[in-house]
């Protein structure tokens, strides 16, 4: 049994300790906003925050979380920065299929937390772990710039 703190609430889950956080979120807790893409931390669609840092939840065993707080896409809009990023995503019509966008938004918020006014090269570096097959990269860049200016 593991007690994990997600978006401010503590959840007790009875799973083997090697179960990645991704499957705890999706299958056990029904929080399906965090997506499955590759299972090997190559695509970024499963990105969540652990202590405010972006991590790939497909490769984070639940036993490794301990008392570190987890934030998912369901909780990212609870502060002004998360709201600004989500608003920029809507204003600039970033999404197409939308499947990768929760992960993109989590990575973008993490970037802006540590670097409120990133250069394009900073954006490229911070976001290069998040794949988008629809090819929305240009609008993601623009939305991050827009949120940074907000």
């Amino acid at each position: 049994m593991y007690d994990i703190q997600i978006n401010g609430d503590v959840h007790s889950v009875d799973v083997p300790g090697d179960t990645p956080l991704l499957w705890v979120l999706r299958d056990v807790l029904g929080m399906t906003g965090t997506k499955f893409g590759c299972g090997i931390a190559q695509c970024g669609v499963c990105t969540v925050h652990l202590d405010g840092q972006p991590v790939r939840s497909c490769s984070l065993p639940v036993a490794a979380i301990g008392t570190h707080p987890v934030t998912t896409i369901e909780g990212i809009g609870s502060d002004a920065l998360g709201q600004a990023v989500q608003k920029a995503w809507i204003d600039l019509d970033v999404v197409q299929c939308g499947y990768c966008q929760p992960g993109q938004i989590m990575s973008a918020v993490a970037l802006l937390k540590t670097n409120p006014h990133p250069e394009d090269s900073d954006i490229d570096m911070a976001m290069s772990g998040n794949i988008c097959r629809c090819g929305t990269y240009q609008r993601i860049r623009a939305a991050i710039r827009s949120a940074a200016g907000a």
């Binding site: 906003g33 809009g77 989500q86 995503w89 809507i90 970033v94 999404v95």
Partner: peptide, 9 residues
């Protein structure tokens, strides 16, 4: 469909 996709609902 943007709001639902951005808020992951």
């Amino acid at each position: 469909d943007s709001p639902a996709k951005v808020h992951a609902t």
